[in-house]
C-alpha cells in the first residue's frame, strides 16, 4: 500500500491510500479526484490522466515508455515531470508519492 497525494492547481490536496498493483489513475478515479478523466479507462490511449510527478519522485517513478511518450502528445503543457497516471503502478516504493494535476484535461 502507498499513500498518494494529489494536488490541484489551487493547492488543495487529497491523500489517498492506494492498493498495490492498482494505478495512480485508478486510485484517483475511484476516489473522484477532480481533473483525472481517464476517458479510455487505462489503455494508455487518451492522455486525459496526465499528471506532473513531484520533482523528488521523478527518479523513483522513472521515465515514460515510448507508447506513453507518444500519448503525451495529446496532453497540454508537457514538462519533464509529465506522466500518464494510468501508467504509474502503485507499490510500497511509491508510499508518499505526490502528483500535481494539470489545469484541465478535456
Amino acid at each position: 500500500m502507498a499513500k498518494i497525494t494529489y494536488v490541484q492547481t489551487d493547492g488543495s490536496k487529497q491523500t489517498i491510500d492506494a492498493e498495490n498493483d492498482s494505478t495512480v489513475m485508478e486510485t484517483a478515479v475511484k476516489n473522484q479526484v477532480a481533473g483525472i478523466d481517464a476517458d479510455c479507462g487505462g489503455a494508455c490511449a487518451c492522455a486525459t490522466c496526465h499528471v506532473y510527478v513531484a520533482d523528488e519522485w521523478i527518479k523513483i517513478t522513472g521515465a515514460p515508455s515510448e507508447m506513453e511518450e507518444d500519448m503525451l502528445d495529446f496532453a497540454y503543457d508537457i514538462r519533464d515531470s509529465s506522466r500518464l497516471s494510468c501508467q504509474l503502478k502503485v507499490s510500497d516504493e511509491l508510499d508518499g508519492l505526490v502528483v500535481h494535476i494539470p489545469e484541465q484535461q478535456g
Binding site: F74, Y76, P102, Q104
Partner: peptide, 12 residues
C-alpha cells in the same frame, strides 16, 4: 459509450 467525442480544448 463514454459520450460523444469532441476535440480537446487546450487550456490556453
Amino acid at each position: 459509450g463514454g459520450g460523444s467525442f469532441q476535440p480537446k480544448r487546450p487550456p490556453i
